[in-house]
Design a protein around this nucleic acid. Structure first.
Lengths: 351, 351
DNA sequence: CCAACTATTTGAAACATTTCAATCCCGCGC
DNA sequence: GCGCGGGATTGAAATGTTTCAAATAGTTGG
């Protein structure tokens, strides 16, 4: 096959070129693309041959301009570096790709401004829906976007009274599970390595922890020492140890997520503090690596893949604007996974 | 008969509405948006007030139709579930967000067909560039896309003779480092838990391992026992142990990435095989959790954040079509990180 | 008071599609 | 022969921008 070496690309081809090449009108070319059943067989063949021969590629923006909504949905996370989100992502992707939808990933980096900026861009792109873990506490701007016709589902965050769909895991319950576990092991001074309280998940887990303490007839103010980390990274988890009176203080550490716990474990090892003997440690999320840490990490498991999948599912019905759709909230229940790092008698390593 | 009033479904506003409201022409509204310096101050104020009052949101597809390329770049990974990719992602995102570019994330799930499908969609969207870790070995379709004017940078994959830009880490060298390390510890039978050889990275690491073996004057055929995993997950890493003659076979396991190593460690523990005493284990990538595994994992570090950042940088110059741009390949060097899992005398835990 | 500028603003073409009413063609029944 | 029905095709309007040549208003110098 002798190839035609075009030196450089000039104007891109449009349906007009295809139509001319095939000897039909643009309307017919459009029909071939969108409603082939309306086109006679021979014409169909001829036009398809022309498309292939010329290497025509439809122009999605033009299509969208006429047609309406785009085929990409926005996914806004607070931090792509956080393994929790990256473990939720596959669940989302799986569902979206079934619908042939593109996933536009935005990371607000916990900045309300950056979030607002991205939301604006997504709205300009006329995405049919957005899946979001909001950076701030106020979500009225999201309700407003929803009102303007953009499907909106809160990810890992209860919808409250907001009339927004939401998929979440019960963080208060998770905090309770963690607190109850540590208390049942006899710990009476608990260090809580938490994120900023503006982040809803952090606030809720703290609330749950307090509930557990009170349920045991104790005073949270005396039992819990909280340290607030500026970011939920291993580095900050390690650094936070500096701000705890380790030797004569807490006998157990509850980390607001496994990433922070990872840093804490590292830091404790360097300081020669043995886990769980001198200090019990537990995390939250039960990410992939939690079971394999040294020592294996007790954690609160969240059904991450399901979370993403359910969120995508909900977004699909929301953005389709189905008449039958109604504001809906799915709350998954967290699960306590006991491992070696809290030194409970029966440790089930590897699971 | 029920006349449902749908406030959310009203026709979206266009610049025509804004122009009417402000008493100017659409041309002026466009200027306010794109070249405010050409517009008189009072007009500017008036138009901006109208935009705000009406809640006008520009239509990105229409804009693009006229303007040309889109403001989103495609990022295609082989598997979003793989922490290697998710640790590369922040590097990419950081650079792209500086340019106010959106990141469209596609996961080929190692399927050449799915990759082709997504590439087609991305081309239809007229993205200015694509950053890709190809699923298959043949990349001629990528060269073709590049020729048609789409910036293209190979991520974590050498460009070979292809005239494509590439950012990679030297995988052959990484394999050599790993092999040399294990050999220096006296191991003479090495099990290699590898991915499918179609995946370039896997093939290269194997090649490096063989090089190291030969450099030690030994025969790879005798030293190395390779097991090919269908997917690079902890589950498969664990399952792969079944296919190795563990007791009288290899004394060391080289896993093609840390995720696989994680599964292998789990499986060995369950079988009561002590690491590193009965079996040395090492991984590849040095992902976040590697240092905190039990035992801490010897691995080959890849500069993941830099990799992503460099790839994005290269893509920017490539898709700008700068006259000065020339096919370029950046190869980072991997680094051996020795930890407890290979039982080398000086273990530096935590780092 | 006019010519010559300059600073603004305007109007319409162009972009690549989709949609749909109108037309064309062809065989068929009468 | 004629009209009719219906499948296939056409042509043009519509979508929401940007761009740019042309028009308009405002200012200055002579």
């Amino acid at each position: 096959m002798t190839d035609i070496h075009k030196p450089a690309e000039r104007r891109r081809l449009s349906m007009v070129d295809v139509a001319a090449h095939a000897g039909v009108s643009v309307g017919t070319v459009s029909n071939v693309l969108n409603r082939p059943e309306l086109v006679a067989k021979p014409t169909l063949r001829r036009v398809r041959a022309s498309i292939k021969a010329l290497g025509f590629v439809p122009n999605a923006p033009a299509r969208q301009l006429r047609g309406g909504a785009s085929r990409s949905v926005g996914v806004m996370v607070r931090d792509i570096g956080n393994p929790f989100f990256t473990e939720v992502l596959p669940g989302i992707e799986t569902r979206l790709s079934q619908e042939e939808l593109l996933l536009v990933l935005c990371s607000s980096s916990d900045s309300v401004e950056k979030e607002a900026y991205y939301l604006q861009i997504l709205e300009q792109h006329r995405v049919p829906g957005i899946l979001i873990t909001p950076a701030g506490d106020d979500i009225s701007h999201l309700v407003e976007l929803r009102r303007r016709g953009i499907g909106m589902v809160l990810l890992d965050r209860p919808g409250a009274d907001s009339q927004l769909c939401a998929v979440a895991v019960d963080n208060v319950r998770g905090g309770e599970l963690a607190g109850a576990h540590l208390l049942s092991l006899g710990h009476r001074r608990i260090g809580f390595l938490n994120g900023p309280p503006i982040v809803r998940q952090c606030a809720d887990r703290r609330k749950g922890l307090d509930n557990a303490v009170r349920a045991a007839g104790l005073d949270p103010g005396e039992v819990v020492t909280e340290v607030t980390l500026p970011a939920l990274t291993p580095r900050e988890g390690e650094a936070a140890l500096e701000r705890l009176p380790l030797r004569e203080g807490p006998t157990a550490l509850f980390c607001v997520n496994d990433t922070v716990a990872l840093g804490a474990l590292r830091g404790l090892e360097q300081r020669g503090i043995s886990v769980p003997h001198d200090m019990a440690v537990m995390g939250y999320d039960d990410v992939e690596f939690a079971a394999a840490l040294s020592p294996s990490l007790t954690s609160i498991r969240q059904p991450k893949h399901q979370l993403g999948h359910a969120a995508a599912e909900l977004l699909l019905t929301d953005s389709r604007g189905d008449a039958g759709h109604w504001h809906q909230e799915i709350v998954f229940q967290p699960e306590l996974i006991i491992r070696a790092s809290t030194g409970a008698s029966l440790s089930r390593p590897g699971q």
